[in-house]
């Protein structure tokens, strides 16, 4: 799968929260070939500090107009600089990255579950799956009312949306996974796709294993290059021996993995 570098023109900025931004950029060549779960690497400056590119998931692809959208939270200096860009500026991106993408083709009743800022890569998945006439059940968890984003967007691309907050201040009360569990028990789910904080991912994996349901997770790891050359972004292969652990790269074999294939 070819990857490319583009100076992508920023055509729209939407501030979803104080510290969460949605950028829409012109990247026709990249969206033409991207798949749900893939990401891009953004260089936020043409100087050498901060040095590395930042990996950010593709949120939405408007293939018709060649627009790529991504959403990021301001965490440190890289995302801070990025958030200062204005409409009309160019954003230096490389993409699409990652060979491990969400694959739902063999299934019909999908559970898509995300937590916090981990929900961003799930939108394109839900949208595409719904367009392919899959039954899309989406479960989104947030800490509380203040953190809820993209409710309408996910509603439009889900057959059923379950939005939950840990403290019950908005939507359902409790962890999103509890509601997924109920639906699994009702026999509504035949496959699971997850992205979010590690504790959530681990719980989802356990649930999937217990119920013998195939499950894919999208993982994060610190990256050097993002294109598969530095071998910096490794995760351990679950079945490899403890005294001779084997690794695969998140930027290459991932970021989406079969949940039982890797340790996380």
């Amino acid at each position: 799968m070819p990857k490319m570098q583009l100076q992508a023109k920023l055509v729209n900025i939407e501030q979803l929260k104080n510290d969460i931004f949605k950028f829409s950029v012109e990247a026709k060549e990249i969206v033409k070939i991207s798949k749900p779960g893939q990401f891009i690497e953004i260089r936020v400056t043409d100087q050498v500090e901060p040095f590395l590119r930042r990996p950010i998931s593709i949120y939405n692809m408007d293939k018709e107009n060649g627009i790529l959208e991504f959403i990021f939270q301001v965490k440190g200096k890289g995302t801070e600089i990025l958030s200062k860009k204005q409409v009309g500026d160019l954003v230096d991106i490389i993409g699409p990255l990652g060979y491990g993408t969400f694959d739902y083709s063999k299934y019909q009743n999908l559970a898509i579950i995300g937590g916090g800022i981990g929900i961003f890569p799930l939108y394109e998945l839900a949208k595409e799956a719904k367009n392919n006439n899959k039954n899309v059940n989406t479960y989104l968890g947030f800490r509380n009312k203040e953190f809820v984003v993209l409710e309408k967007e996910f509603e439009e691309v889900s057959d059923e949306l379950c939005l939950a907050t840990d403290d019950g201040s908005y939507g359902k009360n409790g962890f999103a996974i509890n509601f997924l569990k109920e639906d699994i028990e009702k026999g509504k789910i035949d496959s699971i796709y997850a992205c979010g904080p590690l504790p959530m991912l681990r719980a989802v994996k356990d649930l999937a294993v217990q119920n013998n349901i195939p499950c894919q997770v999208s993982l994060e790891e610190r990256m050097g290059c993002g294109i598969g050359v530095c071998l910096g972004c490794s995760v351990k292969v679950a079945k490899s021996p403890i005294d001779n652990p084997q690794y695969v790269g998140v930027c290459k074999a991932g970021p989406v993995f079969d949940a039982t294939y890797v340790d996380f």
Binding site: V48, F51, E221, R222, M223, C233, K236, N244
Partner: peptide
């Protein structure tokens, strides 16, 4: 097989 992750991190320049 290489070392345990995390294996890379950014530093000034």
């Amino acid at each position: 097989n290489g070392n345990r992750p995390s294996r890379v991190c950014e530093t000034p320049a």
